[in-house]
Simulated assay, not measured.
Amino acid sequence: MSQEFYHDQVFKNIDYTQQPFSKGEYDNCTFVNCTFEAVYLSTTTFLECTFDTCNMTNAKVKSTSFNEVDFINCKLLGVDFSLCNDFLFSATFQDCILELASFAELTIKQTTFRSSTMHRVDFTRTNLENSVFDDCDLTEAIFEHTNLEKADLSSAYNYTIDPTQNQLKKAKFSRKEIHGLLTNYDIKISS
């Protein structure tokens, strides 16, 4: 069965929980206000695509390719990006809800997360070198054996990162949120 190829198309207001999603390759396509909740996107390739105001809660992304993809104002609860095809994986996330998502063991250097809610996101053994967390809420995000070298978390907040369990060389943090690096030491910091 051959897969479809879509180029330079805009898909608007489609609820893929009510109609089938066509697997294939999407090149320079835009999805606006679409619902992919628990939809199987497995083995689909998205190249230079934009997802704008889409609900992708619990979307199934095993072996899915995301290459130069922008997620804007999307709901990505529970998406397990760790199952994606990690070859050339590159994405940006702007104003997204990424709660309970996982990027475990991916190499996603230079990824930008901007103004996003990232509660309980799993970054275990993820390579986030040179990545940016701009104005992101990282409440209960998991950083274990994570490479954050040269990452910019200077405007991120509510994170807990153990410097003895992660690579932090030349990473940027704000003075106001520095307590997130000291939580495991059970010390009190006065203002």
Results as ranks from 00 to 15, higher is better:
Gln3Asn: 13
Gln3Val: 02
Phe5Met: 05
His7Gly: 00
Gln9Ser: 13
Val10Thr: 13
Val10Asp: 14
Asn13Gly: 10
Asn13Phe: 07
Ile14Phe: 15
Asp15His: 08
Asp15Thr: 00
Thr17Pro: 13
Pro20Trp: 05
Ser22Trp: 01
Ser22Leu: 03
Gly24Val: 02
Gly24Arg: 04
Glu25Gly: 05
Glu25Gln: 04
Glu25Val: 11
Tyr26Ala: 06
Val32Lys: 15
Val32Asn: 15
Cys34Asn: 15
Thr35Val: 14
Thr35Met: 09
Phe36Ala: 02
Phe36Trp: 00
Glu37Ala: 05
Glu37Met: 06
Ala38Cys: 12
Ala38Arg: 15
Val39Ile: 05
Val39Arg: 04
Tyr40Ala: 11
Tyr40Gln: 07
Leu41Ser: 03
Ser42Leu: 07
Ser42Pro: 14
Thr43Arg: 15
Thr44Ile: 06
Thr45Asp: 09
Phe46Met: 03
Phe46Ser: 03
Phe46Asp: 02
Glu48Phe: 09
Glu48Ser: 08
Cys49Ile: 05
Phe51Gly: 01
Asp52Leu: 07
Thr53Met: 13
Thr53Tyr: 15
Cys54Lys: 09
Cys54Gln: 08
Ala59Gln: 05
Lys60Met: 11
Lys62Leu: 12
Phe66Leu: 01
Phe66Ser: 00
Phe66Pro: 00
Asp70Gln: 08
Phe71Glu: 00
Asn73Thr: 13
Asn73Gln: 15
Leu76Cys: 09
Leu77His: 14
Gly78His: 09
Gly78Cys: 08
Gly78Lys: 14
Gly78Asp: 11
Asp80Ala: 10
Asp80Pro: 13
Phe81Lys: 02
Asn85Lys: 10
Asp86Ile: 06
Phe89Ser: 04
Phe89Thr: 01
Ser90Met: 05
Ala91Pro: 07
Ala91Trp: 09
Asp95Val: 05
Cys96Ile: 04
Glu99Trp: 11
Leu100Ile: 01
Ala101Pro: 12
Ala101Cys: 15
Ala101Met: 02
Ser102Pro: 07
Ser102Ile: 00
Ala104Asp: 04
Glu105His: 10
Gln110Arg: 15
Thr111Val: 06
Thr112Trp: 11
Arg114Glu: 11
Arg114Ile: 03
Ser115Tyr: 10
Ser115His: 09
Met118His: 12
Arg120Lys: 11
Val121His: 05
Val121Gly: 01
Asp122Cys: 04
Asp122Glu: 06
Phe123Ala: 00
Thr124Glu: 12
Arg125Glu: 12
Arg125Cys: 08
Thr126Val: 04
Asn127Arg: 14
Leu128Val: 03
Glu129Cys: 12
Asn130Ile: 03
Ser131Gly: 02
Ser131Tyr: 09
Phe133Asp: 03
Asp135Arg: 14
Cys136Ile: 06
Asp137Gln: 07
Asp137Arg: 03
Asp137Lys: 06
Leu138Thr: 04
Leu138Val: 00
Thr139Asp: 14
Ala141Trp: 04
Ile142Leu: 10
Thr146Pro: 01
Leu148Phe: 00
Leu148Arg: 06
Glu149Thr: 07
Ser155His: 13
Ser155Glu: 07
Ala156Gln: 05
Asn158Lys: 06
Asn158Pro: 01
Asn158Val: 00
Thr160Cys: 14
Asp162Ile: 03
Pro163Val: 00
Pro163Phe: 05
Thr164Met: 01
Thr164Glu: 11
Lys169Val: 03
Ala171Gln: 04
Phe173Leu: 09
Arg175Val: 07
Arg175Phe: 12
Glu177Ile: 03
Gly180Lys: 07
Gly180Gln: 06
Leu181Pro: 08
Leu182Gln: 10
Thr183Leu: 15
Asp186Ala: 12
Lys188Val: 14
